[in-house]
Nucleic acid binder design. Sequence first.
DNA 1: TTGAAAGCGCTAACAC
DNA 2: GTGTTAGCGCTTTCAA
Lengths: 335, 335
Amino acid sequence: MTIYDISEKAGVSIATVSRVLNGSSNVSEKTRKKVLDVINRYEYTPNAFARGLGLNTMKTIGILCADSSDLYLAKGIYYIEQKLRSNGYDSLLCCTGYTLENRINSLNLLINKKVDSVVLVGSNFIYENEENNRYICNAAAQVPIMLLNGALDAPNVYSIVSDDFTSMYEATCQMIDSGVNDILYYYNSASYSGKRKLAGYRLAMEERDLLKSPELLQFYRGSHEDIPAMTEHLKQLHRDGLSFHGLIAADDTLALSAIKYAGELGIAIPSELSIIGYNNSMLVNSCVPELTSIDNKLETLCQHLISTLLGVLDGREMPKKTIFSGELVRRGTTR
Amino acid sequence: MTIYDISEKAGVSIATVSRVLNGSSNVSEKTRKKVLDVINRYEYTPNAFARGLGLNTMKTIGILCADSSDLYLAKGIYYIEQKLRSNGYDSLLCCTGYTLENRINSLNLLINKKVDSVVLVGSNFIYENEENNRYICNAAAQVPIMLLNGALDAPNVYSIVSDDFTSMYEATCQMIDSGVNDILYYYNSASYSGKRKLAGYRLAMEERDLLKSPELLQFYRGSHEDIPAMTEHLKQLHRDGLSFHGLIAADDTLALSAIKYAGELGIAIPSELSIIGYNNSMLVNSCVPELTSIDNKLETLCQHLISTLLGVLDGREMPKKTIFSGELVRRGTTR
DNA sequence: TTGAAAGCGCTAACAC
DNA sequence: GTGTTAGCGCTTTCAA
């Protein structure tokens, strides 16, 4: 069933059918109705390729993420996909893993598919080395690029970020104020967002001259899902004689491993060890005691990202960078 | 930059360019090289729409799932996307939620986008009422439909399932053999797969005449992520005087809530309460003690789904239904 | 308000 | 081995 069939059956030209299809006002009510009738009767839907060929757009947004099964990224993808769909856009998903080469390839691939824009989900797309971020700028020369939780100052690139620095700074201050002085920082990512978080912790500690030892900064290298390995890392620190009564984690998973660590060593939470996680994910309720965690308002970020994107596609002037602030949600792992 | 530009610069016809683009053998090595040179120099990539218009395929597979942020579904999507991409296909993701109407719309939408096939991820797409499954058959009239963890016997529909029935039957038998007789079954889904699991538990219990009370079957109605609510449900049962020394959950999240429940009530695991979860997800290591869980081999299922799909698209005869068996992974919540 | 016709960029059948 | 050309199904001037 093509536009020709419809035009024939309705006794009009294909131009007229196209007009009613695209909601043009230059069609008499009578003709419109006649055409619409035929369209409905035959359940006709226009061929997306042909339409794309003419319009050079398919109303499709590319979504790039490192790993769609990551708890946090999955949530982000979910929100973005939902909100795009409710605005008439489809989503082309593409998982890149964590190597630069794959990212460049995937981004090109998406752009060759003629997506109208691509959303990079997760701060891990931004590299420290400016040179490594050129792939984003190149892509931005073709379509607007949206960054969720990553910031890059370049033409046609729009960043929506949570203020990880401040969130972490405030959380650290609050833990200190609650009477804990030796706070370990446990992290597993040196991404843009990862560095901002670390800086927040650092500032709070240094302001009070509490960052006595570099050992208080603990980087975990292994898999992002391997809680036993994270726990083991902490136990090793304990065996090495490192002592701490607070632990702030850059991620709920890491925080969870701290709860396990405390459980296995008989350390009482929060009296002997206070713990704060990050993301306020579903994991916060999966443990005993429940985890105090920083909520970075992912849904709000996504909502805003989509409005910005729609604005950009609409040709409106939109803010290049938008910052939201997070919020500490207190539960059982802190005093 | 179009195929015309390239043909001109290379001094050949567009047909020849098209041939080298599509790897046709009827091109002399010399010409091929000449054309390839120009293509590379100008970084030309063919327009996907025009190509789609001609071939009527875009090498894109639609992925439908209820909620891409669900731990289990997210993992499935991840595997499928990966494996498709490594075979030259892209993925159009579409989350439907759990209402039939949205599903019908999403499926149509995907098919209108001219995807080559659509994969339904999760057993919740199959309804008990045959009538409600017609939307799948309709779609299958246009493109092959792949079912991950759901089964439907219809033309052009291919099912890849884990044998949930047997897995659950065996797990239940093993718990009984370990000396637990009063085993609660805790579930939250009446999907195809959900019913198979329940049937497995049922059979094991009934064979030994242990299903004394309907109360042993507990359905949880709330959100799939709300562990506190699941825990509260169990505590209410306890207050109501229901007693059980084993709990088998249809999902790791539910099992986790049982661990919390036991923790809050001071019930020792596994001596006073044995627990088995389902999916062997990352959650199994997030708790103390670690959760015994049934691994339903998601990655294997996905791998097989993709090979089957590629076979179907290739015009080969492929099995309509493939069944894999699961495996009980023992950890600290069982004796 | 409507129709005719010229593309959009590519593939593939056919001719040479 | 290579070129010519007719579509693919739609959008969008331009005329009427």
